[in-house]
Amino acid sequence: MNLPDSVLGSNWLLGFSSIFFGILLGYIFGGFLVPRLTKTLTKDKLDTNHPLYIALLSLVRFFFFILGSYAALRFLKLEVGTEEKVSLYLKVFSILVFTFALARIGSGALALYSSKTEGFLPTASILNNIVRMIILLTGGLVALQTLGISVTPALTALGVGGIAFALGLQETLSNLFAGLGVLLGKKVSVGDYISLETGEEGLVEDINWRTTSLQKRNGSTIIIPNAKMSKTTFTNYSLPNSGIWTEIEIILPLGKNTDQYESLIRKSAQISLSQIYGQNSYNDSKIKIRYLSLEPSSVSLAIHLPIKDIKDSDQIRSTFIKSLHSEFISEGFSNISAKIRN
């Protein structure tokens, strides 16, 4: 092997070694720096599976990989024209890599901030998608500019064709802005339990750029376009309130003292509430009884049972009816009917 071949071989060896050590340092420093960096930024230890932690770890590793790649380019000593082209492509590649990494960091930081501010900033994929789109679009424009492609004509064309674009995606844009309106209005958030005017109810799973998804109690999912969601009437059981309750209507036969009926009803209500929430969770004054109607042979009552969460209503109703049935049977009452009302 002559001297030039030996030098060329050593340059390639140094180049590959630079990339290898860049990757190795990325893994070493990533495991060392990221936990300390996240603790400094969040004032708390961040779980290693959190999107922000993973995004920062990827950023550190890509940084050392790019650093090793630039060092390898210097060791290879390519021809001037070839080196300029490779350097340009490496620069564009670096911009794209860091753009994707920053998009993930922005999304993870938004999720973390939303969880720490307790509803000050809503948590939903629509906001994460918007943050990612803005960062990716900015990075893409920078990459094009780096390649020498002027972005000014593209932006001008986008402005001219914006009207046609908006008309073509009118429904999509309508759902996007309606979703933002619903979310930023803070009348409904991910995790809230709501009931629609159509009678459907469920837990808000997500609000994305097009639809709102509700998980029903049976595990199925309701998909509602955001534009429709912004116009419909719904009840949000998760908003702050002075107390919510579930109502059960009971039809009782005449012939017994109503005070005796009320005593058994209140006793059954206390038993059911104690089973769900513990002893002395609610005092007797929280249990409301209203007389609705009087018939020749019966009287109708409505019992309001206080609940802490709307999701407890089915369990409370079932426990109450079972307890009330036992109490009436023990007293020798019959011909009792109960009807659940929302």
Rank of each mutant, 00 (worst) to 15 (best):
L147K: 12
S195F: 03
L141C: 10
V182M: 03
V182G: 04
D192F: 00
T232V: 12
P240R: 00
N241L: 04
T198Q: 09
G168W: 06
K231E: 15
L180R: 03
T152Q: 13
P225L: 03
S150A: 14
T146W: 06
P153A: 08
V204H: 01
E205Q: 11
V190P: 03
N236Q: 09
G255L: 09
E171L: 13
S189E: 04
S150F: 04
N208R: 08
G191N: 01
S238H: 03
T138Q: 06
E171K: 14
K231Q: 13
T232S: 06
I224C: 07
I250E: 12
L183A: 04
G168N: 10
G185W: 01
K186P: 07
N208I: 02
V151Q: 07
N218L: 00
G162W: 12
T198N: 07
D259R: 02
L196T: 01
S220T: 14
R210H: 06
T172H: 13
N241H: 11
G219Y: 08
A227E: 14
N236R: 03
G162A: 12
N208C: 05
G159H: 12
T156D: 12
L158V: 12
P225F: 02
A157C: 03
I222M: 02
L239Q: 06
V204N: 01
L183S: 13
E201M: 00
G219D: 05
A164Y: 05
L137V: 13
T172Y: 08
L176H: 13
L144K: 09
P153W: 04
T233M: 08
L203H: 09
I163C: 01
I224G: 08
G162T: 07
E249M: 11
I163V: 14
Y237L: 02
L158G: 15
A178K: 03
I163H: 09
I149P: 11
A166D: 11
K187N: 13
L183G: 00
I251T: 14
R217C: 00
V160I: 15
G255K: 10
F165E: 00
F177D: 06
I224T: 13
T221L: 08
A166L: 15
L183R: 01
L254R: 15
Y193N: 09
T232D: 07
A227Q: 05
G140F: 10
V142L: 10
T138Y: 10
A157V: 13
N226G: 08
Q215N: 08
Y261D: 09
D206P: 06
M229P: 06
G159S: 08
I194H: 00
F165I: 11
I194Y: 03
S230A: 15
L180N: 05
